[in-house]
């Protein structure tokens, strides 16, 4: 029980520090967003970006995922049955 209360205190300390930092900072952001009222979706824009500007990271990521997949199967498979 003592342990849990220590943990909770630490978590609250962390929350307090970060939340104070967030509230205390003046964030320079674009106030008026050019929004299209008819179409609020941004999927199209993301799709275009993924296949133009970010195509190299995207392809690399596919290889990483493939590697992780093979690794996961290999680890989880266990002993090979004869």
């Amino acid at each position: 029980m003592l342990n849990k209360s220590i943990n909770a205190t630490v978590a609250l300390l962390f929350f307090a520090v970060v939340a104070l930092a967030v509230v205390g900072t003046s964030w320079a952001v674009v106030d008026e967003l050019p929004q299209n009222v008819d179409d609020q979706s941004n999927i199209e824009a993301i799709g275009v970006l993924v296949f133009t500007q970010f195509v190299i990271p995207f392809e690399v990521l596919s290889i990483v995922l493939l590697g992780a997949l093979i690794g996961a199967i290999y680890i989880a498979k266990g002993e090979v049955e004869q």
């Binding site: 220590i6 943990n7 630490v10 978590a11 300390l13 962390f14 520090v17 930092a21």
Partner: peptide, 13 residues
């Protein structure tokens, strides 16, 4: 990890 987080919090303060 708990100790590290507590330390970082205090360090920031």
């Amino acid at each position: 990890a708990t100790a590290v987080i507590a330390g970082v919090g205090l360090l920031i303060i």
